[in-house]
């Protein structure tokens, strides 16, 4: 089912909407669940958050204008749901966008790969895994670029930022990632 077909079915309602939301759930639920779990949300709670995300997709899909990819619009809901989860945990604190990252960082052990491994592939995999543990949100956005072919504008829609701010965000992702890739530098130069 293409994105447009899916949207059309969502808007038609009834069995068409059930079919479309089932398709979306099968495509994305695992990814959303993994995102919450990587942010140290307990599994059971993470499953509830996934449910909330899809309910919001149904409730709000009529407001989707089609000026971005539908999956980046859904990811904006996912990130919002995570921030709301953290806010509910600490209602006395005003949760900022940056706190999403801090919460993940605080919970994660920032591990630089001490042993670079036997070769380039192994070293970069370890470096990326450590980066993803420390910066789960950034890793997720990079994953969408790598796996789903997201453009900067698609990332901007998910982050709810301007294109300029998103370019800076992605540039910062690269800088942070470079720290983790440092032990692999020799392998990279020799490759």
């Amino acid at each position: 089912m293409t994105e447009n077909e899916c949207l059309e079915k969502l808007r038609r309602g009834g069995k068409h909407r059930a079919e479309a939301i089932s398709h979306l759930y099968r495509e994305h639920a695992r990814g959303f669940l993994g995102y919450f779990v990587k942010h140290r949300v307990p599994r059971e709670r993470a499953e509830e958050l996934v449910q909330e995300v899809f309910v919001k997709v149904v409730r709000h899909c009529e407001n989707f204008r089609g000026d971005t990819r539908f999956d980046s619009w859904m990811w904006a809901i996912v990130r919002n749901e995570l921030m709301d989860h953290f806010r509910r945990q600490r209602p006395e604190e005003a949760m900022e966008e940056e706190d999403l990252e801090k919460a993940a960082e605080a919970a994660a052990m920032v591990e630089m790969p001490a042993d670079p491994g036997p070769g380039l592939e192994d070293c970069v995999q370890k470096a990326y895994a450590a980066f993803a543990r420390a910066y789960a949100d950034r890793a997720e956005m990079l994953a969408r670029v790598a796996f789903d072919g997201w453009s900067i504008e698609d990332v901007a829609a998910a982050l709810k930022r301007t294109s300029g701010a998103t370019r800076e965000y992605l540039s910062q992702c690269r800088k942070k990632l470079k720290m983790f890739l440092e032990p692999c530098r020799e392998f990279l130069q020799a490759s």
Binding site: Y25, R26, A29, G34, E121, A132, A146, L177, C184, L188
Partner: peptide
């Protein structure tokens, strides 16, 4: 190198979890 690492990690962590119970809920 990073893209290869990300794809490798994705392949190795793709656990075949059943989404149907959640979907029915």
């Amino acid at each position: 190198a990073l893209r290869r690492a990300m794809l490798a990690q994705k392949r190795s962590s793709a656990e075949p979890s059943d989404v149907e119970p959640g979907l029915q809920r």
